[in-house]
């Protein structure tokens, strides 16, 4: 079964609780700070920001508990910050400084903390999450494994092997697809035949498509989905139509100006600022300053160390 939750005509966004707004803004300023540091040559390697997509993990945050497993991907800073509220540890990981979540070994896209894991090979986590979901089903019923995937990652066979096993074995596996219409430089209509809903349906897996970028609307749409995955021990695919406001990684945006403008026009950030200027203004300023403080703090730390005993 496929269902679509469409936002009504462009109405004002729902007013958010301060905590939700703070988290959205923390992620936004964290990502902006990273791009800034890259621009100044203060970071090396690569990073993928989730600008424009911050509301996805924020909407999911209260729907998950610590016992659920979350599998993130290359675009995972928002996923991590929504789970742990730990910008210091994440930035230290990206910068290779003391206090890094994984001692600087994993970097931006390879993080393991408690029941949160990210890795850099597209689609690979889907069967791993199915294995974890099998374990949860046997020993901790009611808990689930969530995998974040991009639209482009639906080109990987591993996703279908995982979906098949999850459907056959009734695994509490939730695939959260952040369909931002593009994979690196390739538009979705040039890399994905048919539809994600059609693919889910082929496995007899329920699919929900959500077009709103309003945190509250998305949360309300996802609440029954997670309940169902937990109660029925069943896989589910939710597809969020979203917009990548920034480049794929650092400065590699080859989209036409009007495409970028289209993504920007859907950015929750500007819309929310316009709808609730007072609430937004104060919180935005505070989170910007907080992230600046985090950057100053972490940048001043010594390099991370990888002890012999931690080398596997």
């Amino acid at each position: 079964m496929t269902a679509t939750r469409t936002e009504a005509a462009p109405i004002a966004p729902t007013r958010l609780a301060d905590a939700d707004l703070d988290l959205l803004l923390l992620i936004r300023h964290f990502e902006l700070a990273l791009l800034d540091m890259f621009g100044r040559g203060e970071l090396h390697g690569t990073t993928h920001t989730c600008l424009g997509q911050e509301y996805v993990p924020v909407a999911l945050r209260p729907l998950l508990d610590d016992g659920d497993f979350v599998f993130s991907n290359h675009r995972g800073h928002g996923h991590y910050l929504a789970r742990f509220d730990d910008p210091h540890g994440l930035l230290a990981e990206v910068m290779g400084r003391e206090g890094a979540v994984c001692h600087g070994v994993g970097g931006s896209q390879h993080i393991l903390r408690d029941r949160y894991l990210s890795t850099g090979v597209q689609g690979e986590s889907a069967p791993v999450a199915a294995g974890v979901a099998l374990h949860l089903k046997r020993t901790e019923p009611g808990r689930l494994a969530l995998v974040y995937l991009g639209d482009g990652t639906w080109g990987e066979g591993a996703v279908y092997e995982a979906l098949n096993m999850a459907a056959l074995w009734g695994l509490p596996l939730l695939l959260v697809v952040e369909n931002n219409g593009i994979a690196q430089s390739t538009p979705t209509d040039a890399q994905l035949a048919g539809s994600i809903g059609g693919r889910a349906r082929a496995f007899g897996v329920d699919h929900l498509r959500v077009t709103s970028t309003d945190t509250e609307v998305v949360r309300a749409a996802l609440t029954p989905v997670l309940r169902r995955v937990r109660e029925r021990s069943t896989p589910y695919v939710v597809e969020l139509l979203t917009h990548r406001v920034g480049p794929h990684s650092k400065g590699d945006d080859s989209r036409r100006p009007e495409e970028i403008a289209h993504a920007r026009a859907h950015d929750w950030y500007a819309r929310y600022a316009q709808a609730y200027p007072e609430q937004f203004g104060a919180h935005d300023e505070r989170q910007r300053a907080y992230v600046a403080q985090v950057v100053a703090d972490v940048a001043g730390r010594p390099a991370s160390r990888w002890a012999e005993a931690d080398r596997g």
Binding site: P127, V128, G131, V132, L134, G157, A162, N164
Partner: peptide, 20 residues
């Protein structure tokens, strides 16, 4: 299992990750 060598080893990796 289904014929899914990559998927099966992935599932096994998930079990191992979960301490099994």
């Amino acid at each position: 299992t289904p014929l899914s060598e990559g998927g099966i080893v992935g599932v096994a990796g998930g079990l191992a990750l979960a301490g099994q």
